[in-house]
Every structure is written in C-alpha cells, then in structure tokens.
C-alpha cells in the first residue's frame, strides 16, 4: 500500500491549512496565500489529553451532583443522572431510560476511553492499519454532539415547568458540569489530529 500511496510527509511536502495548496516542507509561509505553514500539529496529542483530563474531572460532579431539582408540592427532590435513569427504569420507561443512559453515560465515557486509546495508539504505534482508527474517530466525532441530549432535556423541562410551589424544576450544578464535559470531549475530538494515524501506519 505504501508503494502506491505516498503521504505528503513522505514527499517532504505539507498542505496549507487555509487554501489547501501544497507547499514544500521547509517553507515557513504558503506560496499561494501567505498563511503560516506547519506540519502535523506536534502538540495535538497533548491538547487532546489535556481536554480529556478536564472531561474526566468534570465527569465526577456531573454524575454525583444533582442534575435537576424538582419541587413538587413544596417537596424538593434532587435527581442525579444515574438516579433519573434508575427512576425511569423503575417507572418502566425503558426506552427513555436506555436513551438517556446511552446519551449521558455510555457515549461520554466511551468517547473519553476511545480518544484516550487513540492517543495511546498513536503514541505507541499500536494501530496496524489506519482504517480502524479512522472509523473510530469518525464515529466519535459524529456521535459526540448527541451527548447534549441530557442537557437539552433539562433545559426544556426547566423552561416549561415553572408553576411556583405546585411544581417547578431548577437546573442543578451537574447540568453545567455535564455540558462542560460534553464540550471538552468535543474539543478533544477536534484537537485530535487524524493525520497522525497515517503517520504511524507509514
């Protein structure tokens, strides 16, 4: 495969990020648009790891602090993400419970684990082919935004159910932590340089 396909790096060339023109590897500026040229981001993995670490930190408050506070007839109930899922399961709303469980727990956790594995694989050249890594990366990139479903649910409920002391819902601290978690994982996915996957299959 490597005989048929050459990477730009192998040809001592690099692509401008702005106008996609091919430049020599040694050029500091793009010959076409004058943009600053740089090769594969050297700190990409470091940035991804830093953001992943942030998301892991945010995962703790997002799951242990109340996601939302329901006041029903002057009776306050705090519900965490997992608590809500369990409650829904007990109320036999299995589909909603599974969706929320997937969106709020499985996807963020899976994303973090997958990205960490990708970083590890890139660093220690564990990938045999770049294809599987690419597919994983695409899935992570696509599915990441769906984690926000839980935040949307809370946002919609808070906006709709405001009936004074009869029934009202207030967002909890975990909502902020959780949205922070989703955002940092999305940034982590963005900062991950997929080109590194090629490099290590060279």
């Amino acid at each position: 495969m490597s005989e048929l396909w050459l990477t730009a790096k192998q040809n001592h060339q690099c692509q401008c990020h702005l106008c996609f023109a091919l430049n020599s590897e040694d050029e500091p500026l793009c010959w076409q648009c004058g943009g600053t040229l740089h090769g594969v981001a050297t700190k990409s993995i470091q940035q991804t790891l830093a953001l992943l670490f942030t998301s892991v930190l945010l995962f703790i408050p997002a799951n242990f602090l109340p996601m939302m506070t329901t006041t029903y007839l002057a009776n306050q109930t705090d519900s965490t993400i997992l608590g809500g899922v369990i409650l829904l399961w007990q109320h036999q709303s299995y589909l909603v419970a599974v969706i929320i469980f997937m969106a709020s727990i499985v996807i963020p956790v899976g994303k973090i684990i997958a990205l960490i594995w990708l970083c590890y694989a890139v660093q220690f050249k564990q990938l045999r082919t770049s294809k599987s890594g690419h597919r994983l990366y695409r899935i992570i990139d696509f599915i990441g935004r769906w984690s926000m479903i839980d935040v949307y649910v809370v946002a919609i409920l808070v906006a709709m159910i405001q009936m004074g002391s009869f029934m009202s819902i207030q967002p909890g601290v975990a909502a902020i932590a959780f949205s922070g978690l989703v955002i940092t994982t999305m940034f982590a996915a963005k900062t991950f340089e997929p080109r590194l996957l090629w490099r290590h299959t060279e």
């Binding site: 940035q47 942030t54 945010l58 703790i60 408050p61 940092t184 900062t191």
Partner: peptide
C-alpha cells in the same frame, strides 16, 4: 531576500493544560 525567521524554543507543554488546571482548581 526574506527575513530570517526567529526560531523560538517551543515549550514542550501545551497551554491547553490550563483548562484541566482551571477545572481542577474550580473543583
């Protein structure tokens, strides 16, 4: 003809690490 690029020493640690640091501090 071009001015010589000043070669700055690139620090090994990314500034992105500030984000988890801030998160850690807030926590």
């Amino acid at each position: 003809t071009l001015p010589k690029a000043t070669i700055a020493k690139v620090s090994a640690i990314s500034s992105v690490w500030l984000i988890p640091l801030v998160a850690l501090l807030i926590g």
